[in-house]
Structures are given as structure tokens and as C-alpha cells.
Design a protein around this nucleic acid. Structure first.
Lengths: 217, 217
DNA sequence: CGAGTGTATATTGTATCCAATATGGGAGTC
DNA sequence: GACTCCCATATTGGATACAATATACACTCG
């Protein structure tokens, strides 16, 4: 008889949980840029010592989500307009290639999952979810690429600008436009038009880049 | 009067020193893949406690240079042939764009520095230095791109396959070929031919990718 | 003799304590 | 009143000690 092995808390250290929690808070914009992250405060909040907190902060720093200075502590990292633009350029370089390679490998399950994200996104029940759905839409399609290294790097880049993208979706026509472009992308994928999907993805990203200055304080 | 501030040991924590040392050892191939890295051993070697060692190991893990499992410890990460190929593809995607953007920004100092690397590389006094010079050649040219995010990501990717590139340089014609291609690249840069430099760079990387299987055990 | 189990040991994860450093405010001086 | 220096306090970096877990080996039992 085979026993289902539950991996609960086997790979998850306290540091990992803290890392995930803070990462999510930063990405969702719950922690504003410049916000100081004091080890003692976080440790109390999670009922642990400062040691795992320091570990989590280190990983956040490696991800570029916080910046820290010796003996001065960590703050939530911000992006200048130039830095944000560069990251969009970076994505505009990677993602078309990733999706081009993913298209011929997409199962119908993947396409359906992406369409579902698309639909839920379009219905727009809950603006708080838009960011999550947007992110999931892209990662779902890209996952088929079988390019783990590209995806790892890409995920870090997406993390870095996610807060700004979420802000963008809340703009007047930000959501409609993203939704329209998502539909076009998933349609191209369904038709197996890899180059088309790549080009649409590139435009989708560069369009977001151009919109950046519109809401940059 | 302005005082030159020497940042020695102001930003360098024990963890940073350990990280740098181990990173270099891995990149240079002094630590073979699969080699276990025990916290206690490293701590003794550097005369510190395990705390800064753990910090260094965490950063190494984020860089992909080691892999670690809870309660099992860390080992030097290896690459499968497929993974190595993917990283070359990744570089082949990024570096042409980086150098294309760098060419119009290259000062004569940068070009001269790159040429110097090239020459020293070509003289081939010391095979042990080839890897360093090769790396410095590329980073020197790329530094002019003014794309800090791209460079950061790129450096990690280069770190990841550096040991394999060093092995490649030691192959029969590995060094000659790299040297020839480096000269062509720097010449294109000197002439301000950004597209040419980008294309040469791309071929340079894809050529290295193709050679991979030749020395893959 | 082999499979499974219990235990000893090694190793990592975390807590607690001390050291080093930055920051802010107050005393003193001009 | 403004500036400088100095020190108290807060906060992070590191060391030591303890807890949790994996691994290897001996042992039992079929």
C-alpha cells in the first residue's frame, strides 16, 4: 500500500515562511518602499528569534526586494523610474523568447488554465485579485517553456516590479487594456502561432513600460 | 577638503568575505560539484562562528552556486548538460542586447582596457589566468551599457557556467578560438558597429554552447 | 542471512547573550 | 542662536548554547 507523503513543514523552515510572507507583502504593495524592516519587530510578529528573521531578510535582499546596510538595517527597496524601465526592457527581452518556446509545448490544460485566469481577470470582481491573476496568467503560459533557469530569473524580475504593475492595473483603462492584450496572447497560443504570441507579449510589456511615467508620482 | 572614504571593512562583513572566497573557489573549479560544504568546517577555516557562514551559504544558494536541503547541508551545485545549454541560451539572448547598447557609450579607456585583456589573453602566459581574463574582457565591455539590472543578472549567469568555460578554454583550440572572436568583437566595438558586435557576441556564446558536449564527460 | 528497527552521532536550525556601530539629543562653547 | 562634541539608546553583527533532524551502524527477529 502506498502512503501519500505530505511534505508539510518538511522543507519549510521558519526563515522560509517569513521570507514568503514578507515577499508577498512587498509584492502586493502592503509594505511601501522605504519602509524599515526591523529584525526585532518581525521576530516578535512571528514568535521566533531574530536568527530566522535575518535569514529571511538576506534572501529578500538577494531578490532585490529590500536593501540593507551594515548596522543600519533593511528597508523595502524602491525603484527609480529608470530602474523600472530597465526591468521592463529586460522582461521585453526574455518573455517573448520564453513564450515562443512555450507555445508548441502547451497542453490544453495549460491553455484552459490561462483562459480561466483571463476570464476571472476580465470579470473584475475584485481589484485586489487583479495583480494575482495577471501574474498567474503569465506564469501559467511560461511554465510550458521548459526553461527553468529563464523562469527563475524572470520570476525575480516580475517580483521586482509587481507592485508597480498592480498600481498600473488600477489606472482608468489599465485593466481593460491588459485584459484585451491577454486575450490576444492566449488566442495566438491556442492557434500555435508562436511568433505572434512572442510579438504580442513584447508589445504588452513595452506598453506597460510606456505607461509607467503616467503614474510616477 | 574632501576625504577619500575607503570602504574597506565598512561594508564587508565576515559573511561577505566568506561568500567571496567560496564563490571564487567554485568559479575557479577548486571546489568540484557535489562537494559538501559543512558549516562547522568553514567556520573553523575562517575563525568565525557558524552564523556568518550560514549567511554566506544563503547568498551562495541564491546565486545558484550551491544547493542545500534542510538538515542535510549544502553541496556545490552542478549543471546537467541541458542546464548548461539553457544558460548559454540565456546569455546568448542577453549579451547581444547589452553590448549593442554599450557600444555607443564606450570610452577609449574602456576599449583599451578590453584590448589589454585581449592581448594578455592571447599571449597565454598562464592558463590559470585565462578564465579571469576572459571574464574581465566581457564585463569590461558590458559595463558601459548602463544597464545595471541586466548586468547583475548576467553576472550570476556567468558565475554559474564559469567553471565549464574555464574547462573549455583548456581544450585544444578553445583558447585560440576565443581569442580570435574576442578580437573581432573589440574591433567591431572600436568601429562603433553595435549590431556587428552584438551578432559576434551571440555567435561567440552559441559557439561555446555547441562545444559543451565535446568535453561533457 | 536479510529486512526492519532502534539508537548514537553528526549536522543543521533556532534561541539567547554579548559586541560593534549608528542615531538622536543634550551640554557646553562661541 | 548655531555649532560641536559627547554620550545614552536602539539596532544590527556575531558567538555560544541548545533543539530538531538526518544518517549510519549495530541489533533483533523472521
Amino acid at each position: 500500500m502506498k502512503i501519500q507523503s505530505y511534505d508539510i513543514s518538511r522543507t519549510a523552515s521558519a526563515a522560509t515562511l517569513i521570507f514568503d510572507a514578507i515577499r508577498e507583502a512587498i509584492i502586493k504593495g502592503e509594505l511601501a518602499q522605504g519602509e524599515p524592516l526591523r529584525q526585532e519587530d518581525i521576530a516578535r510578529a512571528f514568535n521566533v528569534s531574530r536568527i530566522p528573521v535575518r535569514e529571511a531578510l538576506l534572501r529578500l535582499e538577494q531578490h532585490g526586494l529590500i536593501t540593507s546596510a551594515r548596522y543600519k538595517g533593511a528597508v523595502v527597496a524602491g525603484l527609480s523610474l529608470d530602474e523600472a524601465r530597465e526591468i521592463f526592457d529586460f522582461r521585453a527581452l526574455l518573455e517573448p523568447e520564453v513564450i515562443r518556446r512555450a507555445v508548441p509545448r502547451m497542453s490544453s490544460q495549460v491553455l484552459d488554465a490561462a483562459s480561466q485566469c483571463c476570464e476571472a481577470f476580465g470579470r473584475g470582481d475584485d481589484p485586489m485579485l487583479w495583480g494575482d491573476l495577471n501574474r498567474r496568467f503569465h506564469t501559467t503560459l511560461y511554465a510550458a517553456s521548459d526553461l527553468p533557469y529563464h523562469l527563475e530569473v524572470l520570476n525575480k524580475a516580475m517580483d521586482r516590479i509587481d507592485p508597480y504593475l498592480r498600481a498600473q492595473l488600477l489606472l482608468s483603462d489599465g485593466m481593460q487594456r491588459a485584459n484585451r492584450e491577454h486575450h490576444m496572447i492566449v488566442d495566438a497560443c491556442r492557434c500555435g502561432q508562436a511568433d505572434m504570441a512572442a510579438d504580442l507579449t513584447r508589445q504588452h510589456i513595452l506598453g506597460a513600460k510606456e505607461s509607467l511615467s503616467r503614474y510616477w508620482q
